[in-house]
Simulated scan of single mutants.
Amino acid sequence: MQYTISRQDSYSRGLLILRTLFGSIYIGIPHYFLLFFVSIWGLILQFLAFWAVLFTGTYPRGWFDYQLNLFRWNTRVSASLGNFRDEYPAFGLSATQPGVEVDIEYPEKLSRGLLILRLLFGFIYVWIPHGVCLIFRGIASAVVMFIAWWVQLFTAKYPERMFEFNIGTYRWAFRVNAYSNFMTDSYPRFSGKP
């Protein structure tokens, strides 16, 4: 799995202030409006993919690519709203953005046993332990983001260690979501490291 958002050498202070004041209007509303409808189809495909994996042991390639592109679109929006990238996020499932890379290797075969285990006990062995850790990590990330915002405002730089910590939080959550969506059999690590 790859989840990379590249740190820029310098950031625009004007765009930082614009995103802070109006980002939810000019980035959030149009993207999340469209993502809402695109995600409905994603949920339907996730439901159907469960049955496909259960009976065939494979995740249909087109459905897998759709879900992966949905992750990519969400990541582009998060990268902009989180002040990780200055570029306006591209619209669409097939769009790309410099500095934002999300990829999951397509699995030729998936375990039916793990699929049933995730369905019946995923809440206990995935969501509770990872969720608790991610709640505390998310609180720490919010504090770090607040401090990084001020550093960006005054220096036009995002401190590297703060950047890596915050991207690590997003990366960890991405791994948990990919596992929960039956896109991989690899149990997510308790880490935000690549």
Results as ranks from 00 to 15, higher is better:
144 V>F: 04
29 I>V: 14
69 N>Y: 08
12 S>P: 06
10 S>N: 13
175 R>L: 05
108 E>V: 09
95 A>E: 09
170 Y>E: 13
116 I>E: 06
136 F>R: 11
107 P>G: 02
188 P>N: 11
73 W>Q: 08
5 I>M: 04
134 L>Q: 07
193 K>W: 00
19 R>I: 11
47 F>T: 15
165 F>D: 02
101 E>K: 03
39 S>E: 12
135 I>M: 14
6 S>P: 13
62 G>M: 06
121 F>K: 00
140 A>D: 05
118 R>L: 07
63 W>Q: 01
173 A>Q: 11
8 Q>A: 14
13 R>N: 09
73 W>M: 07
119 L>F: 15
16 L>N: 00
157 K>V: 10
18 L>I: 13
42 G>N: 06
67 Q>G: 07
148 A>W: 01
168 G>R: 03
46 Q>R: 14
117 L>R: 15
111 S>R: 08
175 R>T: 09
94 S>E: 14
57 G>V: 02
62 G>Q: 14
116 I>N: 12
150 W>H: 14
7 R>D: 02
39 S>K: 09
146 F>W: 15
60 P>M: 03
164 E>I: 11
189 R>P: 02
106 Y>M: 01
107 P>I: 05
89 P>A: 11
168 G>A: 01
136 F>H: 11
33 F>Y: 05
155 T>E: 08
159 P>C: 03
60 P>F: 08
17 I>P: 04
100 V>D: 10
131 G>Y: 05
5 I>E: 09
163 F>E: 06
53 V>A: 05
102 V>G: 09
46 Q>D: 13
149 W>K: 04
19 R>G: 10
181 N>I: 04
19 R>E: 00
15 L>T: 01
72 R>Y: 01
67 Q>N: 04
169 T>W: 11
53 V>C: 05
181 N>M: 15
75 T>D: 06
32 Y>I: 03
132 V>A: 07
24 S>A: 15
66 Y>S: 03
37 F>N: 02
179 Y>M: 04
162 M>L: 12
188 P>E: 05
99 G>R: 08
16 L>D: 02
40 I>H: 11
187 Y>W: 10
3 Y>W: 13
138 G>D: 12
47 F>R: 11
83 N>C: 14
40 I>R: 07
81 L>H: 00
113 G>H: 06
102 V>A: 06
188 P>T: 00
30 P>Q: 10
71 F>I: 05
71 F>T: 05
45 L>D: 06
140 A>V: 13
50 F>V: 10
33 F>M: 14
70 L>R: 04
38 V>I: 15
129 P>T: 07
189 R>F: 12
118 R>N: 00
72 R>C: 11
36 F>D: 03
31 H>K: 01
57 G>E: 01
41 W>R: 06
35 L>W: 06
145 M>D: 15
101 E>I: 11
14 G>Y: 13
11 Y>F: 05
160 E>S: 14
2 Q>P: 07
160 E>W: 01
179 Y>A: 06
35 L>Y: 02
15 L>Y: 04
191 S>W: 12
91 F>V: 04
97 Q>M: 15
77 V>W: 06
49 A>Y: 05
123 F>R: 08
